[in-house]
Amino acid sequence: MKLALCIGINDYPGVDNDLTGCRNDADDWAAALGNRGFEIRKLVDSAASGAAIRTGIRDLLGRATSGDAVVITYSGHGTWVPDRDGDESDHRDEALCPHDIAVNGPLVDDELFTLFERAAPGVRTVLISDSCHSGTLTRLNRPIGDHRRPSRFLPPSTFLSPAEATRAGARPPLRAKPRSAALLLAGCKDSEYSYDASFNGRPNGAFSYVALTTLTELPESATYRDWLRAIRAQLPSQDFPQTPALQATAAQLAWPLLS
């Protein structure tokens, strides 16, 4: 089986940090993966609560068996929370921001690792995230053109108490961070922004647009490294100074691209 969950969140109630291109990203990823034979489920805006995202990932991985492929695409805000277990060199855990983050908090990378770890042996799990993965940065609104909107952050103070936010200054002893059970293709490095953009008058994430455009130009024999190389030929750019990143084990790099 080939199973995909495509998540896109423009609307963040309770905070003044809405985005514009994430639902289009989810639609575009769903179309591209559907053309490659994936069974698609989408979660957008209010449907993409933290509980729904967790349940969606569990359901896909629960159905998948050895030889199956599971792809999760996420387009929305990223943020950080203070690292509590000492596995982050910057003492911050990166996190995704569900629609209901203001009420129920983020989805932290440690929990994502635990979710992906449940996959049966031999399942090829891929996470494609068009969001910021840094402890101090978030996805921005910045369309191409002369009328650029101000940058908007989603800082931890949006959903953490002042006491919790200040814990990021603590320095717990580092421990080894486990390797992810999923291959990760990210829109930027931990220390960078990911950007909202507009292409031909249609909002998209800069990374999602470039990744999907280059995907159509790759040969069937292409690898994830080939895909990253093609994306990096266009990003970073003067308009979008973000460097897409690939995190994978040697075994994961041998997986067939999106199949």
Rank of each mutant, 00 (worst) to 15 (best):
L3I: 11
L3F: 03
N10L: 05
Y12P: 12
G14E: 05
D16P: 03
D18V: 09
R23V: 15
N24T: 09
N24V: 08
W29S: 00
I40K: 02
R41D: 05
D45N: 15
S46P: 15
A47N: 02
S49T: 15
R54P: 06
T55R: 14
G56K: 04
I57K: 11
R58A: 15
L61K: 10
L61N: 12
A64C: 11
A64L: 06
A69K: 01
V71L: 13
I72K: 05
I72M: 09
T73N: 01
Y74G: 02
H77N: 12
G78P: 12
G78Q: 00
T79S: 15
W80E: 04
D83A: 13
E88I: 00
S89L: 11
H91W: 02
D93L: 13
E94Q: 10
C97K: 01
V103C: 01
D109V: 08
D109I: 08
T114C: 10
A119K: 15
V123A: 07
V123D: 10
R124E: 06
R124D: 06
I128C: 14
S129V: 10
L137I: 12
T138C: 12
L140I: 14
L140T: 15
G145P: 14
G145F: 07
D146K: 14
D146M: 14
F153M: 14
P156R: 13
E164P: 02
A165M: 11
R167Y: 05
A168L: 07
A168W: 04
A168T: 07
G169W: 09
G169P: 05
G169F: 13
P172H: 05
P172G: 05
L174F: 05
R179G: 13
R179H: 04
S180G: 15
A181P: 15
L183W: 03
L184C: 10
D190C: 02
D190T: 11
S191V: 13
Y193M: 10
S198E: 15
G205K: 05
G205M: 12
L212A: 01
T214C: 07
E217P: 00
E220D: 13
A222F: 07
T223S: 15
D226C: 01
A233L: 09
P236H: 02
P236S: 06
F240N: 09
T243Q: 03
L246G: 04
A248W: 01
A250D: 07
P256G: 10
L258Y: 09
